[in-house]
């Protein structure tokens, strides 16, 4: 489980560092947040209070908000400059 999350995190990091299109960079960020979520869930597996899962839930909410704001910024940039390539 931890290996899976580490692999996912580094794939996300590589996408974030190498890609040109900002939407794909956003996908890389989502992958990294997913990796942290897997880590949290894996560590809260034996926890009866399930704090890791709750925190993963909040991380999910924040990730959605962040991607929505980033996409709004991208659409605005596209209207102004007619391209979003970095």
């Amino acid at each position: 489980m931890l290996l899976l999350s580490a692999g996912l995190f580094f794939i996300g990091l590589a996408i974030f560092l190498t890609k040109k299109h900002p939407v794909v960079i956003l996908m890389g960020i989502e992958l990294m947040l997913n990796a942290t979520n897997i880590n949290l869930v894996a560590f809260s597996q034996q926890d009866p209070r399930l704090q890791g899962q709750l925190f993963a839930l909040f991380v999910m909410i924040v990730a959605v908000a962040e991607s929505a704001v980033a996409l709004a910024i991208m659409v605005k940039i596209f209207y102004n400059q007619n391209t979003v390539k970095l």
Binding site: L26, V64, S67, L71, M74, V75, T83
Partner: peptide
């Protein structure tokens, strides 16, 4: 959340910002 929300949002973003 992710497949129903974020992915659709990303696809909309791609469509709106494609050349």
């Amino acid at each position: 959340v992710y497949i129903g929300g974020v992915l659709i949002l990303l696809l909309f973003g791609i469509m709106l910002t494609s050349n």
